[in-house]
Simulated scan of single mutants.
Amino acid sequence: MATIQDIQEEIVDEFAMFDDWMQRYEYMIDLGKNLPLIDETQKTEDKLIKGCQSKVWVDAQLDNEKVHFTADSDAIITKGIIAILIRAWSGQKPQDIIAANTDFIDQIGLKEHLSPTRANGLVSMIKQLKMYAVAYQSQLN
């Protein structure tokens, strides 16, 4: 299985192929269409990420000591953003998710091309995914 670093580098390389941000937004929307969707029954208040302008639900399950994320959003750009994070971190060990840096977000220029409220939402998404990893890590110890 690819490491988080390997996957993040792939994402950076993929975004580098596009000349402008309209193409990158379109790519993010496509990534969102392939997002592992959260089960409709899991779209509950406790799965909703606080701090997002859009509604974003995230669930995590631990299987074979690896965290698997599913998510959904009511906004197509936000769905693409969470898809990028899930692609980088889903299927990884909790301690690797906790230790993972988010430099790849800056490398693809995502934060600087988001509105302040979407950028805050991105930070909230990162925090929530890492909190799931921390919770599962404590179960494994």
Rank of each mutant, 00 (worst) to 15 (best):
M1D: 15
M1R: 05
A2Y: 09
A2I: 09
A2W: 02
I4K: 12
D6Q: 15
D6I: 11
Q8E: 15
E10D: 13
I11R: 03
I11F: 05
V12K: 07
V12C: 10
E14V: 15
F15S: 09
M17W: 06
M17Q: 14
M17C: 13
M17L: 05
M17E: 13
D19F: 06
D20A: 08
W21K: 02
W21I: 15
M22S: 13
M22L: 15
Q23D: 12
Q23I: 06
Q23P: 03
R24Y: 04
Y25C: 11
I29M: 11
D30N: 14
D30A: 14
L31V: 09
L31F: 12
G32S: 02
K33E: 08
D39E: 13
E40M: 09
T41R: 08
K43Y: 08
K43D: 13
K43M: 11
K43L: 07
T44G: 12
D46F: 13
K47W: 07
K47Q: 14
K47D: 13
L48H: 13
L48W: 09
K50L: 13
K50D: 14
G51C: 03
C52R: 00
Q53D: 05
S54D: 03
S54G: 04
V56E: 01
W57Q: 01
W57T: 02
V58C: 02
V58E: 00
A60I: 06
A60H: 11
L62Q: 08
D63N: 11
K66N: 15
H68G: 08
H68W: 07
H68S: 12
H68R: 04
F69K: 12
A71G: 12
D72Y: 00
D72P: 10
S73D: 04
A75F: 05
A75K: 03
I76G: 00
I77E: 00
T78I: 03
K79F: 01
G80S: 04
G80K: 00
I81R: 01
I82L: 02
I84S: 10
L85Q: 07
L85R: 02
I86C: 12
W89D: 03
W89E: 04
S90I: 02
Q92Y: 02
Q92K: 11
K93H: 05
Q95S: 14
Q95Y: 12
I97D: 03
I97V: 12
I98M: 02
I98K: 00
A99V: 06
I108P: 05
L110M: 11
K111I: 15
H113Y: 08
H113W: 05
H113A: 10
L114N: 08
L114Y: 00
S115G: 15
P116M: 07
A119P: 06
A119I: 07
N120A: 06
N120M: 10
L122W: 11
V123D: 12
S124T: 13
M125R: 08
K127R: 09
Q128F: 12
L129Y: 10
L129E: 06
L129C: 12
M131P: 06
A133T: 04
V134C: 05
V134Y: 03
V134N: 09
A135R: 03
S138Y: 00
Q139L: 11
L140P: 11
N141D: 10
